[in-house]
Amino acid sequence: MSKLQILTKGIIKENPSFVLLLGMCPTLGTTTSAINGMGMGIATMFVLVMSNIVISLVKNLIPGKVRIPAYIVIIATLVTILQLVMEAFVPALYATLGVFIPLIVVNCIILGRAEAFASKNGVGDSALDGLGIGLGFTMSLTLLGAVREMLGAGSVFGWKFVDGDGILLFVLAPGAFIALGYLLVIFNKLTSKIR
């Protein structure tokens, strides 16, 4: 696999939200607006890249049997660091994303990539893999956030293009499920045509 392939596979072919269907909780929970979705995506990407780098660095030092607990400790540490940094420098975003920031720890994408990629590959490739999957995750969260904001509030990234309220349902909980469901239908349709 070339470097470019490692980087780009996360965006379409192995897109975590649309193809692998991993990390659904933040995907649905934080995408009330495009900017929130993007914030969550970037936060996850940070942890993903860092955990991939750290784990690929220490992979030979960790005995196979305590592998998973060790990974969890590493990931939890990185998440806590992220939590503290966000609380200090972007308190508003931290407050909006709320409980979903500490819950990055149990996002299956992170542990999944650690186990499937970083524990078998070099530092450079692992970083690229993390970046690629992270980008894919960020993109799909931003897209879903943008769609929900567009339909629900008549704006994108806070920029209002329709006067009035929009279809409120899409900002509320049911809208998250429905919007993601239809996005998946469109995604499936498009990818099946390409194949």
């Binding site: 960790i62 305590v66 060790a70 400790v73 939890a76 540490t77």
Partner: peptide, 12 residues
Amino acid sequence: MVLVLFVITLIA
């Protein structure tokens, strides 16, 4: 084995 885990936790 336990030692490694302990060291990791300590560093963390």
